[in-house]
């Protein structure tokens, strides 16, 4: 009873066991609402799982691998580029350039696609460029903000330990902000999956789960659309968990002061 009161009280830290029960209950409730929803257009769980089986036989697994590899490549490249650009903001010359890059996040892909097409030799490269661009403009914004918000005291500490300015950058900006870099990566890697549908819709040469999703949507096959979305969601959750795990392994200090761990 006390546990039940606790889960509805503000700022309470609840046990892992209670979390398991609570999440289990919420998932069950969600499934129940889904299964018995009166909305006509919302496919029922049975229909979605049936469609999932059919899609799997039609090659959903292979398409998932294609998309996953593309997304992984894009995330790796975007991470390298964005971290590099964000770290370069320690040099005044690069600050306006990075600010300009971060402003590009307001742009739509329309029109820009033409230029990327001219630069890319294959469909895969085009999709890669588009994804890297879309993710990087957000990633670089988040990470540049992390770098800009480092307190002066941390730089001073490094300097009092006789570090030259490059070593200060390595210790304070790169190593010292690694936990935050993982967090920014986590958010932007999730965004990669959202962009994937759009990008695979622009160039369908390799197929991919995004192209498959758009095809099904075009023919209003909502059962199949939901089945593919469910697969993307599960894959995204696994990716999110994986990045979180890496953060825990490499930055075990990150959550030590949090109330909710």
């Amino acid at each position: 009873m006390n546990q039940a009161i606790e889960v509805f009280s503000p700022n309470r830290v609840i046990s892992k066991q209670t979390v398991r029960w609570m999440v289990g209950f919420q998932l069950l409730l969600l499934f129940f609402i889904w299964a018995f929803s009166p909305t006509v257009f919302l496919p029922k769980p049975k229909e979605v799982f049936q469609a999932l089986g059919e899609m799997w036989e039609e090659g959903l697994g292979g398409e998932l691998i294609t998309s996953f590899v593309l997304n992984l490549e894009a995330i790796a490249l975007a991470t390298l580029l964005s971290l590099g650009m964000a770290y370069l903001t320690v040099i005044p010359f690069f600050r306006p350039i990075v600010t300009l890059l971060s402003k590009l996040r307001f742009l739509s892909m329309v029109g820009l696609t033409f230029f990327f097409t001219l630069m890319a030799s294959t469909g895969h490269t085009l999709k890669l460029y588009l994804l890297v661009f879309s993710v990087s403009v957000f990633f670089v914004t988040g990470m540049a903000e992390v770098v800009a918000s480092i307190p002066k005291g941390e730089f001073d500490l490094a300097r009092t330990l006789r570090m030259n300015e490059w070593r200060v950058v390595y210790e304070v900006v790169i190593l010292g902000q690694a936990d935050k870099a993982f967090e920014v990566l986590r958010q932007n890697a999730a965004m990669g999956w959202m962009m994937l549908t759009m990008v695979e819709g622009i160039s369908r040469s390799e197929g991919g789960v995004g192209a498959m999703l758009l095809n099904q949507n075009k023919h209003f096959q909502l059962n199949a659309v939901f089945a593919i979305q469910l697969t993307i969601l599960l894959l995204g959750l696994a990716q999110d968990y994986g990045i979180g795990l890496l953060r825990e392994v490499f930055c075990p200090y990150a959550d030590l002061t949090l109330e909710r761990k």
């Binding site: 500490l157 300097r159 009092t160 010292g176």
Partner: peptide, 17 residues
């Protein structure tokens, strides 16, 4: 030069990582 004189600020700075 920085580093020749040690500094201990009020918040006792150390590298959190």
């Amino acid at each position: 030069q920085a580093g020749e004189v040690g500094v201990v600020s009020q918040d006792y700075p150390l590298f959190a990582h």
